[in-house]
């Protein structure tokens, strides 16, 4: 496949981690307890680490002399191709956990499949990241169970969060043109193949958490095409502030 499409494919995976990492990073010093605060910022750090590997690879592939920072900080909103799920704000703890839970289960299965890619660099990143994401998935699943099977209040809140975020789950499996090209080249993950397992794994946790799996007919999409929700602009202005104010600045 050509380099431009490969870069687009890589960004489709990397942007999810970048934006979710940024959302979790917002909780630094604001977690409900010290342990949870540390856990969520650790997950954020893992995601940023993974993002750096993807962006460094994309920079290496790009014709002009782009760096990893150009991908992270200097694109416009329309150029980010993360799914809508990960840009949703931290409303309350249940909401943050539900968002994490719905993403972690997808992320784990995606990386698991990516280990069979024909692209060596993506295989290396997948193998490395998978070990970390299995901890993320355990953390968020444990909390879904704890909140679901917890007090009346915690159960109500986590159920509301799952209900609200469920509409973004379909987009995880959607394929862009770059995705289709990557799949054809044996590089990309065929998301149809992991969807069944995803629903199965997520349902099993929800059941153990005594929560209801939402029944929805309409799903929301757009992020993968660069059409984001109203929350994205605020997130980017925060994330890009330093590079926009002092272009080219370094620590």
């Amino acid at each position: 496949m050509n380099k431009d499409s490969l870069i687009k494919y890589i960004l489709g995976i990397a942007d999810n981690s970048l934006i979710l990492g940024q959302r979790l990073g917002e909780l630094t010093g604001h977690g409900p307890t010290l342990e949870v605060d540390i856990a969520m910022t650790n997950i954020s750090l893992d995601l940023f680490g993974q993002v750096r590997s993807y962006f460094q690879y994309a920079a290496q592939l790009s014709e002009d002399d782009k760096t990893e920072d150009d991908f992270a900080f200097l694109r416009t909103e329309r150029e980010y191709v993360n799914v809508l799920l990960v840009e949703q704000p931290n409303r309350d703890f249940g909401y943050t956990i539900a968002r994490q839970f719905l993403f972690d289960h997808f992320h784990f299965l995606l990386l698991n499949e990516m280990q069979n890619s024909k692209d060596e660099t993506l295989v290396a990143i997948a193998k490395k990241s998978l070990k970390e994401v299995s901890y993320h998935r355990r953390f968020s699943s444990d909390w879904v169970k704890r909140l679901g099977d917890g007090t009346e209040e915690s159960k109500r809140k986590i159920q509301l969060a799952i209900n609200d975020l469920w509409r973004f789950t379909e987009e995880l499996f959607q394929k862009t043109e770059a995705d289709l090209e990557a799949i054809k080249a044996g590089i990309g993950v065929e998301t149809d193949k992991i969807k069944g397992k995803y629903l199965e794994n997520v349902s099993a946790v929800l059941e153990e958490a005594t929560l209801q799996k939402p029944k929805l007919e309409f799903f929301q999409e757009g992020g993968k095409k660069g059409i984001h929700s109203e929350h994205m602009g605020y997130l980017l202005s925060d994330m890009q502030y330093m590079q926009r104010t002092y272009p080219g600045m370094k620590w």
Partner: peptide, 13 residues
């Protein structure tokens, strides 16, 4: 175990 995530990425508390 107090937390699966500790003071650095590689540790649990």
């Amino acid at each position: 175990m107090v937390s699966q995530f500790g003071s650095t990425a590689c540790k649990a508390l």
